[in-house]
Simulated assay, not measured.
Amino acid sequence: MTIAENATAADTTALLVAVYQESLGTPGLDEHSDFYEAGGDSLTAFQITARLHEALGVEIPVALVFAYPSPADLAAVVESDFGRV
């Protein structure tokens, strides 16, 4: 499934929160949690983008995880750049 198929910005944010929680091993993270403050590193960023590729069917550059460190910020970029096709 691509982002397009019945996805909303809220769905993308919820997906990113779940991916961050799983990848960082921190179940209490929310959409405003910071990747760096939660202990994120380059390996974790690659895990996040790999999981997003599996879930969304699009390649998300790992640099976006560093540039937009919260799930909400990254979701906004993913929606805008990779949108609902």
Rank of each mutant, 00 (worst) to 15 (best):
G40Q: 07
A75F: 06
F35M: 12
M1N: 06
V85L: 15
H32M: 09
A75G: 13
A72H: 03
D41E: 12
G83K: 09
L52V: 15
D81M: 03
F82S: 04
I60A: 01
D41T: 06
A38D: 13
D41I: 05
T44Q: 12
E37I: 02
I48G: 04
T8K: 02
V65N: 01
T26A: 11
V58N: 02
D81T: 04
G39C: 11
G83R: 13
T26M: 09
E5P: 05
E31F: 01
P69F: 10
D73I: 03
S70N: 04
H53R: 14
P71I: 05
V58L: 03
G25F: 06
H53V: 12
E79T: 12
L24N: 03
Y20W: 14
P61K: 03
A75I: 10
V19D: 00
A18G: 15
G39S: 06
E5H: 11
P69R: 13
H53C: 07
A67L: 04
V19W: 01
E31R: 08
A9S: 06
L74F: 04
I48T: 02
E59M: 04
A10W: 05
I3D: 08
Y20Q: 07
E31K: 07
E37S: 09
A75R: 09
D30T: 15
A67G: 02
A75P: 13
A4N: 15
L74Q: 11
G25Q: 14
Y20G: 08
Y68E: 13
H32P: 00
E31V: 07
A10R: 11
V17E: 09
G40V: 13
P69N: 11
Q21E: 15
S33N: 03
A18H: 04
G39T: 07
F82L: 14
S33H: 10
V19M: 05
Q47S: 11
I3W: 03
Y20P: 06
D73S: 15
F35Q: 12
P71E: 09
A50C: 00
G40E: 13
V77N: 03
A76P: 08
A18Y: 09
N6D: 15
H53K: 15
Y68P: 06
P71K: 03
L56K: 05
G39E: 11
L16T: 09
S23D: 09
F46V: 11
D11E: 07
V19K: 01
A14M: 12
L15K: 04
T44S: 04
F82A: 02
L74D: 05
D73K: 15
A10G: 08
N6S: 13
L64H: 07
D34W: 07
D30N: 15
A67I: 00
D34P: 08
P61M: 03
A7I: 01
V78E: 05
Q21H: 10
A45S: 03
T49S: 01
A63C: 01
G28I: 02
L16H: 06
S80D: 14
E37H: 02
T2M: 15
E79C: 08
A76V: 06
R51L: 13
D30M: 13
A7R: 12
T26L: 11
A76D: 14
V77G: 02
D81L: 11
F46L: 12
S80P: 01
G40D: 06
A63T: 10
I48A: 05
L29D: 05
M1K: 08
G25K: 09
